[in-house]
Design a protein around this nucleic acid. Structure first.
Lengths: 343, 343
DNA sequence: GCGAACTGTGGGAGCGCTCCCGAGCGGGGC
DNA sequence: GCCCCGCTCGGGAGCGCTCCCACAGTTCGC
């Protein structure tokens, strides 16, 4: 006679029905708040649920409804370092909050290796989730093209590479933000405004250069002269700023495409003996809470609201899941200038 | 005659079996790599799986196996600000990596409101996951006591409040790290070593004070005089340092219980005209990648390897899930001193 | 040389749920 | 007074999978 492990047998809907003196079907109706149930039945079932501590078996429900009430949140980044960025934490937090509010579970996937990607593909194709939020900004990333073939609603953060036809996405107004930043510098009377750019494999970076170019009216030759990539990291920002000081000694302002790079740029300016903002005014991008307010001097920057972006993505995805109409396939969210002491 | 929406009917195991010319049972055996299958059958099934692009229906499998192959990763923080901390990003990333390697899905839950907690409770009790990793360091948090009643393996990060009996946890050696930090300062000949502490509602903070107290041999009165809480944020670190400078004007070293607070403490020291490390040597805690190397001067600090901690938690949990023996219910991971220019 | 053990396989039950369909019942219209 | 409609409810099928059990065929021991 062996001792059964007997992990506390959870009550089933059958048990609830029996206790409530109704059929399984009626009990199910109550749980799914179907309208065609008498008040007495409703009450009896509700009471039985509480008494038995019943929780529906998700697998069984999912098997028949073909819904999982879960969505995947996928971050695809060739360089895993991005995951240390607090921006990433903000995005996750925003997603968690918005999905929790809709009582949808969040399955997080971080992909940076080809194996991760294969796993993600299998997972998304495997019907484990009803939809996905996809963060895959980098050129050459295969995931978006794989994802678009999936019979699964996907909402993208920003514009992925490849054809956009038919994609649902929520972007930040990077161009507009860069224009505002640059015009702010122009309005301060600055004449020689350079730009430290990000990596050319992300649209967010490309758009920011584009906004700067439009605002200053630079042609191709000027653009080549007046911009330098800082690779979206602090060291890169410093290097880029140093190179620009070398090439354009009389520069009097810089639009730097991220706060992290701007912190590096400020280091370079300090080392070159330039005063900020007197000699050189600097505007960053992101309004990074751990960086922008704490640089020397505190950084004027463009704030993009990640919370808002993710909230929009979630709303959009939920509408798709519920077959509700979406206002537009693509949404572009505004960015705003936050002025501090670097301008 | 209505048009069926007909979402691409996924092949079932039945289809695979038919195509391979075997029974459903044999096909299932192949998929679950059961040993008792002939090579021919194995090959036929494998081929059929590829040809049909079959992926197992997770809900059906889960219904009968009572496993979900998913675990919850729960962060319980009354103050949601913590989620902006890059430390948080590192933990998530480490968890994602370790769980992905085991082909276990990660369901992320961020709880800070009572509703979040109720949701988390329901979710954990609902059999949606096989186990959970729980980060709930704060005193008064109800989640740990709820979780311990759940028929669900849980591994804790650090020591939660309440009885530890029977809990599985992986902690960092906060006491040891603080001792090493303080002894480092003593070895430099420092005599008046103060400490900026964290919040009293976390064991990590309490342990760090304790380590400092042990190393300097302070009694209760001295401890009250020589320590000040910085509330684990930058402003608090600054305030605490200023208060300590006031109370102990001849202090010549400080052990600060987090890098973020240490950054604030350095601000306070600078404003007070103290040179670091000449007048006051400072040691932080965390080795925060965005802070420690970039303070002025760069910060000597205690590194705790979050990756390692989470990896241990995952390994521990997986062993529990597989009914394998665990070495010890509680693991304590070492911390190491990273020396930079602030000492 | 014959029963026992072992190996590969298929049939079938059943996991817990939803949903279709039809039964039962009461009330209103003619 | 009868029929029909609307409302609530129960029976039963079936979602796709795993796993128990039985069975046929082979090999081994004495």
């Amino acid at each position: 006679m062996s001792v059964q492990p007997q992990r506390a047998a959870r009550p089933t809907l059958e048990d609830v029905a029996e206790r409530a003196g109704v059929s399984r079907a009626t009990a199910s109706r109550v749980l799914n708040s179907s309208p065609r149930v008498s008040p007495e039945a409703h009450e009896a079932v509700t009471a039985a649920v509480v008494e038995l501590g019943y929780t529906p078996n998700h697998a069984a429900r999912s098997l028949v409804t073909r819904r999982t009430d879960a969505v995947a949140v996928v971050f695809s980044e060739p360089e895993p370092k991005i995951f240390d960025d607090p921006h990433f934490g903000q995005l996750i937090r925003a997603a968690a909050r918005a999905l929790a509010a809709a009582d949808v579970q969040m399955v997080l996937m971080l992909v940076h290796s080809p194996e991760d990607q294969a796993r993600a593909e299998r997972f998304l194709a495997g019907g484990h989730v009803d939809g996905a939020l996809l963060f895959a900004p980098h050129k050459g990333d295969q995931l978006p093209s794989v994802a678009r073939k999936l019979p699964l609603p996907v909402v993208y953060a920003g514009r992925p590479w490849g054809p956009l036809r038919g994609l649902h996405l929520v972007d930040n107004d990077n161009i507009g933000g860069a224009v505002v930043a640059t015009e702010h510098l122009l309005s301060l009377g600055r004449k020689k405004i350079v730009s430290v750019t990000g990596t050319v494999d992300e649209y967010s970076s490309i758009d920011r250069v584009e906004g700067w170019r439009t605002a200053v009216g630079a042609d191709e030759a000027e653009t080549a002269l007046m911009t330098e990539s800082g690779n979206f990291d602090r060291e890169g920002g410093k290097r880029a700023m140093a190179a620009l000081l070398d090439r354009v000694p009389d520069l009097d302002a810089a639009f730097v495409a991220s706060d992290l790079m701007a912190a590096g740029a400020l280091d370079a300016l300090r080392e070159a003996g330039k005063r900020v903002p007197e000699d050189v005014a600097v505007v960053g991008f992101d309004d990074h809470p751990l960086i922008a307010p704490h640089t020397e001097p505190p950084l004027t920057t463009i704030k993009q609201d990640s919370n808002d972006q993710v909230a929009h993505m979630v709303t959009h995805l939920l509408r798709l899941l519920r077959d509700e109409p979406v206002r537009a396939r693509r949404e572009v969210l505004p960015t705003i200038l936050v002025r501090r002491q670097s301008t």
